[in-house]
């Protein structure tokens, strides 16, 4: 059962990794603007040409 101690330590490490990723994402400004990225992702390199049909 002592192996559990190691496993739990490892699982905690992974969780800390996710926390670090979250903090990095926040610091990077990913939570600052939640609307524009949704519009931006619709822009292909060449959305030719919806209008000419």
């Amino acid at each position: 059962m002592e192996i559990l101690i190691l496993l739990i330590a490892l699982s905690l490490l992974i969780a800390l990794g996710f926390l670090a990723a979250f903090i990095w994402a926040t610091r990077d400004g990913q939570y600052d603007d939640d609307q524009t990225p949704a519009i931006r992702m619709l822009h292909d390199n060449h959305p030719q040409n919806a209008k000419t049909e």
Binding site: A15, F18, L19, F22, I23, T26, R27, Y31, D32
Partner: peptide
Amino acid sequence: VNRRLIYQLGVAGFAFG
């Protein structure tokens, strides 16, 4: 933008789980 609340929320959620 005030990011402090987002950090606080993230830390609390992490610890809670």
